[in-house]
Design a binder for these strands. Structure first.
Lengths: 169, 169
DNA sequence: TTCCGCATGTAATGGGTTACATGATTAG
DNA sequence: CTAATCATGTAACCCATTACATGCGGAA
């Protein structure tokens, strides 16, 4: 259950509405933790019911602004300290594992597509880096580390996929 | 719905029981696509009902051996050719994003733990590589590519996490 | 006044995890 | 005989995705 903690974490920066949070998910968090509109709104309601968030103001069009409570911050810290991430699924690699079911040409196509996607992703991250105005806040600081990771990861993805395509007979 | 295709793909190598498949998931596939016992058995039943697999023999203790059908192979190929993987969630990075909620010491601990885990994973992959007896079959060939990817990925993970830990004030 | 963007909510469905439940066979 | 391993199945719960459904406010 990590969406919950992602929301608590973003709200640590300051109050925001569900709509605001969705925009943040679209730009900064999309690469590490995608979330849908439906999911965000239902989770916010649950978090407010549980007392981890509070509705602190209401605006036009039914807009509700949520603020992190003391309990919410405590839960976020507990989760970060007491639990550790599980290794995650990698569908791209599962597919490589199964490529023996295709012809060599088809397999090579897939690997070349992976290389291209990695290159596109890398370019997207460079663009994001240029677009963000970096203040010295905590989230910006750690966001920078995540961005650096993304760039390194996409570089490896691209190098590996390019190499792998040459290995197919 | 990828577990379905993972099962079809493994059964392309030859008939196997649910129990056999679980062992394969434990050793070879655990890193790219973990699956639970419960999930494997229910999915096998569904696949047989759909005609993508057939029960071709029965052994002691109710053992059922499943064989890939023509329809099953066709579905596997269709999935590999017509669909492409979505980018996946990365909980480890989500956590980095949220580390501003902790003290610098606690954040550094987490990053150092990540580095250590990457090192352990890498060692595990080396051991796996040494343990596998490599025949020249398709699945072995592509399995080798996946293994190479795993090693490169863990190397980047380790380098990045080690570097990131030094960046924390 | 019309369209776009803001803004929220819910229902159906599917996949994954945990837990429960059972029992046969074989090696020591 | 007894423990470990082989072997399968099901129910409850949670999370995520897709689709449906609604409506206000501001800009042109």
């Amino acid at each position: 259950m990590s969406l919950r903690h992602a929301l608590l974490g973003i709200l640590r920066e300051g109050p925001a509405s569900g709509y605001d949070l969705l925009q943040i998910f679209k730009v900064s968090l999309h690469n590490s933790w995608p979330a849908t509109q439906s999911q965000v709104y239902t989770e916010l309601t649950k978090l407010a019911d549980a007392g981890l968030l509070a509705v602190t103001s209401r605006g036009p069009r039914g807009r509700k602004e949520y603020t992190l409570t003391g309990d919410g911050l405590a839960e976020l810290q507990r989760w970060l300290i007491e639990t550790r991430p599980e290794p995650h699924r990698n569908e791209a690699m599962l597919r490589v594992f199964l490529l023996g079911a295709l012809t060599h040409d088809q397999a090579r196509d897939y690997l070349e597509w992976l290389a291209k996607r990695a290159e596109d992703n890398r370019a997207g991250l460079e663009a994001l880096e240029a677009a963000i105005d970096w203040n010295d806040e905590d989230l910006r600081f750690y966001g920078r580390l995540v961005l650096e990771y993304g760039k390194r990861l996409q570089a490896v993805n691209q190098e590996w996929a390019t190499w792998a395509a040459t290995q197919v007979p």
